[in-house]
Design a protein around this nucleic acid. Structure first.
Lengths: 338, 338
DNA sequence: CCTACGTGGTCAATCGGTAAACCAAGCGGT
DNA sequence: ACCGCTTGGTTTACCGATTGACCACGTAGG
């Protein structure tokens, strides 16, 4: 089925069919209806490749997820994020091209260059903002419109979406813990080379300082339950134990909690625990996990909306990005001895 | 950068360039090298749309994930699966187009028809095999090569990949529990309209029968921790309690375990619990979750390999699909009173 | 010496749309 | 009656590759 078949059935030229479906040109209502009817009858839809070739727009955007060859598998939290992206793409008939970049295995320059040069996508959504990230500069050199999810390392180099302020959630968490009497708060965060944990660290230190406190410890570590458990053990073995520990993700927090309990200590009586993400599962561990809820679905929507705007598409809803919010459940309580 | 630019720089016709990069036609080694050099210098890569139009192959495959509007968000376990698909696609420069089908919101016939007619993808991977699934028939009517992940409802209607036997893991689990003295085993499975829980139910009943036992209960329910918790409570409130409960997913099992513990019962002393999936997180709950490990990454690899084969691509490795395997951790133990 | 064939390319049609240029017909105004 | 404008289309070039047909040239065989 091609546009010519439709044109033939409707008794017009292919150009007329094109005009009807693109809403430009002048075609009478009667003819338009005849054409639409013919298209319907033939189950015709324009060939994506032909449109892409002629208009130089593929009507698709790319999403790059990063997977570390050391910590395999891309984060599970990405699924909600993807759903969010799709929710703005699919009504506009945009496609989503998924690409998994494997750190250490792929050459970054070559990887993105190939994506750009094949022109399969009109724009791209980048995740996992890194310290000294070269991708913003690379993208603008390649001329591929890009939106970064999360705070960029260097502002101004790339468009981005991020909950404002970048480190939201940390302040509430610290306030919450301090109000419960905690003075020795540790933070087992995330990899040093990511921007997010870095900003969180700063916010953490800053907010504690606002209360006249200093961090008990800030431990950067990969986003892995096992590593979180190890570092938790290390903290517990120290001369002075923290009374509360923040973790970079919920899964790390759960692993940490288990480690604490395995040591014979109780959560939250001896040590309070806070996670990051807001996984449903957090409600079902013992005790239920206090966590900073993030909104992956909305983040996806916002990123997609921003990118489409960059591409000249008119996106009505601005898609507000909700700030991460502290959800207090059972894993935080008064500091021991209060 | 187009093929003509490369041709001009190398002092040949565009046709020659094409022949070099596609390995047909006869071009001398000297000229070939000059052409490759020119392409390298110009950073040229063939335009995907032009190739797709000319050859009628888009070099991309689609993946449809299903999201229920009632249970929003597509399953997190899908990420590993996607990584698996990508691992066979990306070396061959195939793209992966993600599509989220929202049950109740999208019309199935229209959804797939649109995908097929726009010809953005050469083939498609379907998930969530359903009872009375109409998609196999739809796909063959649309002429879109498809591979179903999981056991099809009607064999023969569609190509599929599935660990053999379909219900593997159930038998081991039942054997394991029976060997521990359990006689009242319940199964809080998955939605009735999916094939997988249905097959598992059959296998469950069958294997118990092999041991001369009958199921304590089989409860079909959505894949949701909250619902699992509710049904667990119901089981505990019954006149006779089960001594072991299987759950359709790990997250459900964790929620169930929590519910059991909240009732004052102990796992595994009073009730044994088994999950399905093999989430890393299962190691970090108390007690660590006994579960049937599935291999999402491999499943992705197998599905992609099968689809590419269908498309006439030569895929060397047959990608063996490992059977789900029971991982015994702490949540299963001797039946009470043994 | 003529023919047949192999080598190494060029040429041109084609894929399925889009969009600018163009044109025929009708119509109102003078 | 003629001009210019609007309406409702048609024509045609083009996007960037692929691919089969074709061709020039050298060479080996008879």
């Amino acid at each position: 089925m091609t546009i010519s078949d439709v044109a033939a059935l409707a008794g017009v030229s292919p150009g007329a069919v094109s005009k009807v479906f693109n809403g430009n040109g002048r075609i009478s209502e009667a003819t338009s209806e005849r054409i639409r009817e013919a298209a319907r009858k033939l189950n015709w839809r324009p060939n994506a490749a032909a449109i892409a070739l002629r208009t130089a727009r593929s009507q698709a955007i790319g999403l790059v997820l990063t997977s570390d060859s050391k910590v395999p598998g891309v984060g599970a939290g990405n699924m909600d994020f993807i759903s969010g992206i799709e929710s703005v793409l699919s009504p506009r008939e945009y496609g989503l091209l998924l690409n998994v970049f494997i750190t250490g295995q792929h050459d970054e320059d070559h990887f993105y260059r190939t994506l750009a040069e094949r022109q399969r996508m009109d724009g791209i959504i980048l995740t996992n903002s890194r310290v000294s990230d070269t991708r913003p500069e690379l993208m603008s050199r390649l001329g591929l419109p890009a939106v970064l999810v999360g705070a960029p390392w260097q502002p101004g180099a790339i468009e981005y979406v991020d909950a404002d302020p970048p480190s939201a959630g940390i302040a509430e968490t610290v306030d919450h813990l301090v109000s419960l009497g905690h003075e020795r708060v540790a933070f087992i965060s995330g990899p040093r080379h990511f921007v997010l944990p870095e900003l969180r660290r700063e916010a953490f230190v800053q907010r504690l300082a606002d209360h006249g406190l200093r961090p008990h410890a800030v431990v950067p570590v990969e986003y892995s339950p096992a590593r979180a458990a190890e570092e938790t053990s290390a903290l517990l073995a120290g001369p002075v134990r923290p009374t509360a520990i923040l973790y970079g993700t919920d899964t790390m927090a759960i692993a940490g909690m288990r480690t604490i309990q395995a040591t014979g200590l109780r959560v939250p009586d001896d040590i309070s625990v806070v996670g990051f993400e807001g996984l449903t599962l957090g409600e079902w561990v013992d005790p239920p996990l206090t966590t900073v809820q993030r909104f992956a679905f909305q983040r996806g929507r916002a990123a997609a909306a921003k990118l489409l705007t960059l591409l000249g598409e008119t996106v009505e809803e601005p898609v507000p990005l909700e700030r991460p919010a502290l959800i207090v459940r059972g894993s935080t309580g008064r500091a021991p001895g209060q």
